[in-house]
């Protein structure tokens, strides 16, 4: 065996060895569960009944399920409202974090805190803020001389409350991603623009925004998928109420899993998966389209 040949086979071993854990992880924890869920959605898999092939029965059931319609409507509305808000305010934060100032380190740390707090804790914090009897929100309201408001008591109130809590929590995430993008834009571009007399607004729309586009697409993608499967915040803040109006798709699916209906629970998971897949395609498409134009 020549030395070269030995090197190749040893290289191959090395590469295979390092790839193996990653690939095994993907297969065991992502690929198998996804297909498993897809399969389970096609059977009537209820712990207290005989397991049998159901074909598309579970999917047909979706169309007659008012709880599903309500959840789907809520989830879509939540994405449409929260993701744009988070992106715009995340952009603001990113610009703030990018400014060179003696307080840069402190500002960055403060902005990042909400993102570092687990969603369950965030839920608890906001639950206390919105509490009718002793919440911070009603304290401020009563200071201003109004009657206390039951923030989570109406469908629209609970919706806005969830969006605000989610906004607070995820703005920093968007900001970090955008900040990374901002840092990669060469300073010389701005210097030239300044020499040409471009205002801050002009510089933002002509240099920052176009160059950030790919990064914005990534942020949008992450946020859209995250918003689609929102669970923990709602579970703690409203448990889906009032009257089921804030039950997200994942919360609905969860309820079916603990009740023992794995088939229908999986069907709901597949719906979430398909939505995420389609939304991702749309977002990625939008990103490419804008790149071609510019």
């Amino acid at each position: 065996m020549s030395k070269k040949q030995r090197n190749i086979s040893s290289d191959f071993l090395w590469i295979a060895g390092f790839l193996f854990p990653g690939i095994a992880f993907l297969v065991i924890f992502i690929l198998i569960p996804v297909f498993g869920t897809l399969f389970t959605s096609l059977i009537s898999d209820i712990t207290f009944m005989k397991r049998q092939w159901a074909g598309l029965d579970n999917y047909i059931r979706l169309f007659n399920d008012s709880a599903f319609r309500q959840s789907l409507g809520f989830t879509i509305l939540f994405i449409l409202v929260s993701v744009p808000l988070e992106t715009v305010s995340g952009m603001g934060l990113a610009l703030l974090m990018h400014v060179k100032s003696p307080f840069r380190g402190v500002i960055r740390a403060i902005i990042l805190i909400p993102w570092a707090i687990p969603a369950a804790v965030t839920g608890r914090i906001w639950e206390v803020i919105y509490n009718v009897n002793y919440g911070l929100a009603n304290y401020l309201v009563s200071m201003a001389g109004f009657d206390p408001v039951n923030w989570l008591g109406t469908a629209s109130g609970a919706f806005i409350a969830i969006v605000l809590a989610d906004l607070w929590k995820t703005m920093p995430f968007v900001a970090i991603i955008l900040l990374a993008g901002l840092s990669s834009i060469p300073e010389t571009l701005y210097q030239q623009a300044r020499i040409d007399g471009a205002s801050f607004v002009k510089r933002f729309f002509s240099i920052t925004l176009p160059l950030l586009r790919p990064v914005i697409v990534v942020a949008l993608l992450f946020r859209t998928i995250d918003a689609l499967r929102i669970f923990d915040l709602i579970y703690i803040l409203t448990s889906g109420g009032p009257g089921g109006s804030t039950t997200s798709l994942s919360l609905l699916g969860y309820k079916y899993f603990i009740g023992g209906d794995y088939g229908y629970g999986s069907t709901l998971s597949v719906v979430i998966f398909l939505c995420a897949f389609l939304l991702s395609l749309v977002v990625i498409r939008l990103g490419q389209f804008s790149r071609e134009v510019s």
Binding site: F48, P242, G243, G244, G259, G260
Partner: peptide
Amino acid sequence: VPHYSYMSSVLQRYLNAVMAGRM
């Protein structure tokens, strides 16, 4: 009944909607 939790979540949804004055 084994499917009690599903009955319960329907009951919860409608009862809560009435309590909230939404229905």
